[in-house]
């Protein structure tokens, strides 16, 4: 959806690009198909919201990775480290300000979580900058070394979290007004999941607008399509890439904070555990495509939730089955990004 450029201006003579809508229909179709299988409407609503919430969080973690790959042909196997660091940085705000977390005031709750998120994004963004400089810059274009080196970076980062925050799990409290659920009819909607959906949608819409309506977005999309051409036109694609890398890391940090509060306990492996899911999502979406990544995240999370309810044993491998199915249909992912 985002990778397909719309006509630039009214007077441009460019042919209209055909918008590929079939993948867009997948998510609603899947949800509707599952309704009769699940049976009861309230359960279905609960499952769907839970799936969407999880999908949003996964999308935040995955979107940066897929953009980084599309733009610079770098696959960061250490992306999960940013998720962990983000979640752990949030504890620096959330644990000392326990009072603000425990009060019943919505505004104090919101502001403390907001501060935690801001700090986490700042730290992971800066870390992303350092990571790009130190770890990735020397190995551009060398895939084998990239995989190894980012894997090594991940190990080191995970161990450093142990050094700084200690080896024990850290319990993370949800702010008191975020707990509980809204009851609508018979369907229980957990508040925190709705918040996650809200944040996720905001991120997605912002990203969509930035990518499609701003000059920077135009350059990023052009860079994904053909980086050399952008450079030839006089833009420093390297700076663009550093920016995208930082933004992607910060988004992973944001995803980490939300995911950490969702799980309510933190371990240093929290990011590493998500890596597999994130990879599946970006493969399904098509490497380099943000829109595909969004749909992929929704699909994976919804299927996991429905399968967990209908056939728990199948749920263990549902992501893999989904990936294989999608790849059999479209071997390059939902929205193939041409080149490479």
């Amino acid at each position: 959806m985002t990778t397909i450029p719309h006509p630039v201006t009214q007077d441009s003579p460019l042919a209209k690009v055909r918008v590929d809508v079939v993948p867009l229909l997948l998510v609603p179709m899947l949800a509707l198909l599952m309704l009769p299988l699940v049976g009861s409407f309230p359960t279905w609503v609960t499952l769907t919201v839970a799936g969407l919430a999880m999908g949003m969080m996964v999308f935040m973690m995955a979107s940066g990775l897929t953009l980084i790959f599309g733009l610079m042909d770098v696959l960061n196997f250490g992306h999960g480290a940013f998720v962990s660091v983000g979640a752990f940085t949030a504890t620096l705000v959330l644990l000392p300000m326990k009072g603000w977390v425990e009060t019943e005031s919505v505004w104090m709750n919101l502001s403390v979580v907001g501060m935690a998120i801001l700090l986490a994004m700042l730290v992971t963004g800066l870390l992303g900058w350092a990571f790009e400089r130190i770890i990735i810059r020397p190995v551009y274009g060398l895939h084998l070394k990239q995989i190894l080196i980012t894997m090594g970076g991940m190990i080191v980062a995970e161990q450093l979290i142990h050094v700084i925050w200690g080896a024990e799990q850290i319990p993370l409290q949800l702010p008191s007004t975020f707990r509980g659920a809204f009851i609508i009819g018979d369907a229980a909607l957990e508040k925190y999941r709705l918040i996650a959906v809200g944040v996720g949608l905001t991120v997605f819409v912002t990203m969509f607008l930035v990518l499609n309506r701003t000059k920077v977005g135009l350059l990023i999309r052009a860079g994904v399509e053909n980086g050399e051409m952008v450079e030839a036109l006089g833009y420093r694609i390297r700076r663009l890439f550093v920016g995208v890398f930082m933004a992607g890391s910060a988004l992973a940090g944001l995803g980490g904070v939300l995911w950490g509060m969702y799980k309510e306990t933190l371990t240093a492996a929290i990011g590493g555990e998500m890596t597999v899911l994130v990879f599946i999502v970006i493969i399904i979406g098509g490497l380099g495509s943000v829109g595909g990544c969004f749909i992929g995240a929704m699909l994976v999370a919804l299927v996991a939730n429905y399968a967990g309810f209908l056939a728990p044993k199948v749920a263990l491998v549902s992501d893999i089955l989904l990936m294989v199915t999608v790849l059999l249909w479209r071997p390059q992912g939902l929205y193939p990004v041409a080149k490479r």
Binding site: F77, L144, I147, V276, I283, I320
Partner: peptide, 14 residues
Amino acid sequence: AIFYAMITLAVAAA
């Protein structure tokens, strides 16, 4: 190579 790395990671995890 990168695709293979990701696929094997997913399969091994499953």
